[in-house]
Design a protein around this nucleic acid. Structure first.
Length: 895
RNA sequence: GGGCGGUUAGCUCAGUUGGUUAGAGCGCUACGUUGACAUCGUAGAGGUCACAAGUUCGAAUCUUGUACCGCCCACCA
């Protein structure tokens, strides 16, 4: 590793081999002798391709895990994949469709084999892709929700909940996807606001004495109506309750019932009841013993329960036809536009059909209670905090969870039904049954599979071997952080907490970091269908993983979305790439100027650099490094990762590269003494900065760090110690003195630019009316001022420096004045205008401040310290203005 | 319908308990190939902090209202 570095950083030659190097050394795997820190990776779908959402999510987790690993924790970041029941089955069914087949043509066994083959083929793609981001997850421990081990654990959980009475089977209205042909949970039926219509239909009374008008957004459901309901106290309908209605279209007699659940203020106050297709209707109907008529087939066509002429019609065609028939009969009262929320399948976006169906449910209230308590007692820490209130609200209003799915890909429900009619036992079992435990008769297993989330909610403990424990479980449960997008707060996070509490007695993690969503410049979520996605692999290819990570992390304020432009990768990711290149060159510069041993910085040892040898510039950069360690560490700890990343960025670029390295060049080149001290300081602060940046940009920092002097072969930054701020490095005197020198240099440069002094030409400058800090800076950093301002001579003069007319001026914030004689270059009118503008701005500020200080209220009410500070500020400004006025007088400027 | 966030420079965003002459990166302008870096350097332009009222000696920051954007929840059919 001693070959010279190329002038440009090339991530491609570095990243893949370095990743293998880390992995070969088992650095991603916890060593087992220190306090653990655990993050469970949200398992990507087994057939997924990496997208920018993963890029963001994985970057955040890797920053956290690398930070804690360097801080000495036994960091475990466990990766895994989710079998993703409906999603994966849909993918394979689409492939089958291309062959003109359906899963039913293959049959259950063959279809599952087909999916398994597909998963085997594509299943590891996503895990490979994760590696390219530099994710330091533990590949020696991965999980798959459909592995034999996790499947056994799923059965254990199911049977255990069943035995506790927390799982039951029942006939209720569920959300049904007519395209996926399965039940969905409430969470999987996503509500979307749509512009629909509301139809007011006339229902004639059977005795011909009148009619009652009902309102509906789904007229086709009237085919399954079994009653009309009104509020018991509704005087309009008082005489009608108990009467019969002759339903149009279907020509069926149904009763009018009274129920308090009806809102008399909505619509006409009368509601048609379709118990098989609406949850509220079902509830009312069961109170009144009314029948439920399911009028639809699984794919949402009208079934044989509907009139013959409707059978086979799609529900939306049936809707049109029902409306048409009402209209033809003069029974359509009116149609109005109506905006309302309609459930859509979260996998295929089909409008969900509420449908009466036999399903399995988990009784959630008992599970939610401790999960809510864990939030209320502060055990759970949400970042950002407001997500906690969403969590609590959901827990408070929790509904039972429909866990059965009418698909084939997943964990089959471990319940067996006895075929023996006289027995009919239903048995939940941890092992496959071949005969009925009660009567010994033949059994058949439930056809349905479990919701994918039923198994993924368990991974915080099942991935560690539960219900067995080879030591991993007790060591790494409970974990610490969970990092994910807010979309799956209820699907996954909330349920992990509930199941963790139920089966392990402790929450699986205490910090829940919910980051934002990756969006395009129009703030649309990136998606394949919109074509506005960014492929992270493209970004890695073009800019490197470090650049991707830095861009994403530095742009991620807590709880906000990340906006990236898919049409302009350059503007998004060049910042990260440029920074990597800058860092590379800082390293190249420092390394190329080392010769032989670099002395350590110590307190007294003979061959160490001691404090007395440090120049003001050295002390300044050490102080800046010390501040940066505190700032970055604080940022990482508080999960303000952008603050941490930007703090190190500023240090490396604006302090180290722009100033310190420039300041020490003469010493490094031997033109000034103290080269070995400068080298020691540069190496020390660079080393510290690399450590601070490693969580964000692991590849380049590791590469450079290993080349620093004193490294032993095979030593890795990944597990190097996190820097600790040394109070001896904090140095406010050096900070202000060096800052003053920076101000002087900037002032002279500014004048040079203003007057377009050729870059090669030196200037002279005089510092007058100097405050103590500028004076000290001139004494300690004079040579640097000369060189960086390209000044042949800078003098520290008294009140009346030779600042004649042909000079340009600048005033520093402490009232110190910088005068640069420029001879013919100075355009008096221009200089007057320049200074005049400056003076006017100051005057304005001074007037405002004088008024403030002249205000009795302010002086008496504001804290003394604030008043004192304002007084000092005023004095300083007045000083500055006096200098400016003086300059302008000398120049003969018009007032 | 209920609850919650946001609105700061052309763009993406900082601004921690009210006290700055309101900041950064990118973009833009001018100049520049100085022995780490043109994926660079130096300097500069650019904002009545969405709007209105209020509290306060003092508001980007606190209160209320308005407008627009977004998120979560919801069995008014």
């Amino acid at each position: 590793m001693t070959e010279p570095l190329a002038p440009q950083y090339d991530p491609k030659t570095v990243e893949a081999p370095l990743y293998r190097w880390w992995q070969d050394r088992h650095l991603f795997t916890p060593r087992g002798d220190r306090s653990p820190y655990v993050i469970m990776m949200p398992p990507p779908n087994v057939t997924a391709q990496l997208h920018m959402g993963h890029g963001l999510n994985l970057s955040v987790q890797d920053v956290m895990i690398r930070f804690e690993r360097m801080r000495g924790r036994d960091a475990l970041w466990m990766p895994g994949t989710d079998h993703a029941g409906i999603a994966t089955q849909n993918v394979v069914e689409k492939l089958l469709a291309k062959e003109g087949k359906t899963r039913f043509d293959l049959g259950r066994e063959a279809f599952i084999q087909r999916v398994e083959a597909f998963v085997a083929e594509t299943g590891s793609t996503i895990l490979e892709q994760i590696r390219s981001l530099g994710a330091s997850c533990d590949w020696e421990h991965t999980y798959y929700t459909l592995s034999p081990e996790l499947s056994a654990a799923v059965r254990e959980v199911f049977v255990s909940l069943y035995e506790k009475g927390l799982i039951y089977r029942g006939k209720y209205i569920i959300n049904w996807c007519p395209r996926c042909l399965t039940a969905l949970s409430n969470e999987e039926a996503e509500k979307e606001e749509v512009d629909g219509q509301i139809w007011r239909l006339r229902y004639p009374l059977a005795d011909g004495s009148g009619q009652i008008i009902v309102a509906t957004t789904r007229p086709e459901t009237m085919l399954g109506d079994t009653a009309v309901a009104v509020h018991p106290d509704d005087e309009r309908y008082a005489g009608l309750v108990g009467k019969m209605i002759r339903l149009p279209v279907v020509d069926r007699l149904v009763p009018i019932v009274a129920d308090a659940a009806v809102d008399p203020a909505f619509g006409t106050g009368a509601v048609k009841l379709t118990p098989a297709h609406d949850p509220l209707d079902f509830e009312i109907a069961s109170r009144h013993g009314l029948p439920a008529i399911d009028v639809m087939t699984p794919d949402a066509r009208i079934n044989e329960a509907g009139p013959e002429r409707f059978q086979g019609l799609d529900r939306f065609d049936a809707r049109k036809r029902v409306v048409a028939e009402f209209e033809a009969a003069g029974l359509l009262d009116k149609v109005e536009p109506h905006r309302h929320a309609v459930g859509h399948c979260y996998r295929c976006d089909t409008v969900v059909e509420p449908r009466l169906s036999d399903q399995w449910f988990v009784k959630m209230a008992p599970l939610a209670k401790p999960a809510l308590e864990a939030y209320r007692d502060g055990t759970l820490n949400f970042v950002p905090e407001r997500r906690g209130t969403e969590y609590a609200l959901w827990m408070e209003n929790i509904r039972d969870w429909c866990i059965s799915r009418q698909i084939w890909w997943g964990h089959r429900i471990p319940v067996w039904y006895c075929d023996n009619g006289s027995c009919g036992a239903m048995t939940a079992s941890r092992v496959d049954l071949t005969s009925c435990p009660s009567c010994g008769g033949a059994v058949r297993q439930d056809e349905d599979v479990l919701d994918t989330w039923f198994s993924s909610q368990l991974v915080p403990f099942t991935s560690l071997g539960w219900p067995d424990d080879d030591g991993s479980l007790s060591r790494f449960y409970p974990g610490h952080a969970l990092v994910t997008a807010p979309e799956i707060l209820f699907f996954w996070v909330a349920r992990m907490i509930m199941s963790g509490l139920e089966f392990k007695g402790q929450v699986p993690f205490t910090t829940i970091y919910l980051h934002g969503t990756v969006r395009d410049t129009q703030h649309r979520k990136m998606s394949k269908s919109l074509g506005n996605g960014i492929d992270p692999l493209d970004v890695v290819e073009q800019y490197g993983a470090d650049a991707l990570r830095f861009t994403v992390i530095a742009g991620l304020a807590v709880g906000t979305d990340v906006i990236l432009d898919p049409d302009d990768l350059e503007s998004s990711f060049s910042t990260g790439r440029n920074f990597a290149n800058k860092l590379w060159n800082v390293g190249r510069f420092i390394l190329s100027n080392l010769d032989g041993e670099v002395r350590p910085i110590g307190s007294s040892a003979a061959n160490a650099v001691i404090r007395d040898e440090l120049s003001v510039a050295d002390r300044w950069i050490l102080a800046r490094a010390e501040a940066t360690i505190r700032e970055a560490t604080d940022g990482y700890e508080r999960l303000r990762l952008n603050d941490a990343a930007n703090a190190v960025y500023r240090f490396l670029w604006n302090d180290l590269a722009d100033w310190y390295l420039e300041a020490i060049k003469p010493r490094l080149y031997g033109d000034q003494p103290g080269g070995d001290v400068a080298r020691a300081v540069a190496v020390r602060v660079f080393d510290q900065a690399l450590r601070l940046l490693h969580p964000v940009m692991p590849f380049i920092t590791e590469t450079l760090w290993q080349r620093l002097p004193g490294r032993t072969d095979g030593e890795s930054l990944m597990v190097a110690a996190w820097p600790v701020p040394d109070p001896a490095d904090a140095d406010s005197v050096a900070l202000s003195e060096f800052g003053a020198a920076q101000d002087v240099i900037t002032a002279i440069r500014s004048i040079r630019a203003e007057y377009q002094v050729p870059p090669g030409q030196t200037v002279r400058a005089a510092l007058t009316r100097c405050g103590p800090v500028v004076t000290a800076a001139f004494q300690s950093l004079g040579p640097m001022m000369h060189r960086l301002a390209k000044a042949s001579e800078i003098t520290l003069a008294g009140e009346d420096a030779g600042n004649g007319a042909a000079a340009a001026h600048a005033v520093l914030t402490d009232g110190s004045s910088v005068t640069v004689p420029l001879g013919d270059l100075v355009d008096t009118a221009k200089e007057c205008a320049r200074l005049g503008q400056e003076a006017a701005r100051l005057t304005q500020a001074i007037v405002t401040l004088e008024q403030k200080l002249g205000n009795e209220q302010f002086v008496s009410r504001a804290p003394a310290a604030v008043v004192q500070k304002e007084r000092e500020k005023l004095a300083s400004w007045q000083d500055q203005r006096a200098v400016l006025d003086d300059k302008r007088t000398r120049l003969g400027c018009p007032s």
